[in-house]
């Protein structure tokens, strides 16, 4: 078959151009190259650094200390943006267990459809270095929920915050040892945007027009106000 012959030919060419050392030697050499440096975080508190970078990414934020407050924050966002109580959320046990009544929110569990206003994801983690949230595709967060809605609301547990992109992958690898490789891993860092027309930034290209991050857990009291001051300056 043409396919097999292309593969054989190519691999042969690469073999001739390569060193072809034993794998053990290759990995020893790779490890000797050291680790890549990551940028300094904008604050010493992970929460504050994460909030600063979410704000820089054109996200909006709310800080809550328990699940009841988090539901209320969701309700507030839904009301202010769409005058609605409805949203779509994945079949995530953590979302199923939320006290929805505390905010009179009416979730529909499943995959988002075109035309729906808002979705809610429970992030696997938040990354302080880049102000990103991480989701895995699957039943608990169908890919459509990140993409097809107007507003993407994301809950992030402070306990799941990591400092760097590398730390995020350490956690991803741990998760994969338990439950295998998800089809997709998404680092989301802001509402969808484009600068393709005269280099002017416009929010709401193909995905969500707005991105609301609700941090949940133990948060230093002044983290949010510090973050706002840092990004307004």
């Amino acid at each position: 078959m043409a396919q097999d012959s292309a593969r054989t030919e190519l691999m042969g060419k690469l073999q001739r151009a390569c060193q072809n050392a034993q794998p053990a030697r290759i990995y020893a050499e790779l490890n000797s190259l050291g680790e890549a440096p990551s940028p300094t975080l904008p604050a010493s508190s992970l929460c504050e650094a994460f909030l600063i970078n979410v704000l820089k990414n054109q996200g909006t934020v709310a800080c809550t200390s328990n699940r009841s407050e988090a539901v209320k924050a969701v309700a507030e966002h839904l009301h202010s943006r769409f005058r609605t109580r409805k949203l779509v959320a994945g079949n995530d046990p953590r979302l199923a267990a939320m006290p929805w009544r505390d905010g009179a929110v009416l979730p529909r569990f499943g995959a988002a459809e075109h035309g729906e206003n808002a979705s809610l994801s429970y992030a696997c983690m938040g990354i302080a270095e880049t102000g990103s949230i991480v989701t895995y595709t699957g039943k608990s967060n169908p890919a459509a929920n990140n993409l097809l809605v107007e507003d993407h609301i994301v809950l992030v547990d402070t306990a799941t915050l990591v400092a760097t992109l590398d730390d995020a992958w350490t956690q991803i690898n741990k998760d994969q040892q338990e439950s295998g490789r998800p089809r997709g891993i998404n680092f989301i860092s802001g509402p969808s945007s484009t600068a393709d027309i005269e280099a002017q930034l416009v929010k709401g290209a193909h995905g969500p027009r707005s991105w609301h991050v609700i941090l949940l857990g133990e948060i230093p009291e002044d983290a949010l106000s510090n973050a706002r001051n840092a990004t307004e300056a």
């Binding site: 940028p39 970078n53 820089k56 990414n57 270095e129 880049t130 102000g131 990103s132 699957g138 295998g180 490789r181 998800p182 089809r183 997709g184 891993i185 998404n186 680092f187 989301i188 860092s189 802001g190 509402p191 969808s192 945007s193 995905g207």
Partner: peptide
């Protein structure tokens, strides 16, 4: 520092 979407895809749906 990062784009809005950085995604990793491994294969077909599970």
């Amino acid at each position: 520092p990062i784009t809005c979407y950085t995604s990793f895809y491994s294969g077909p749906r599970r």
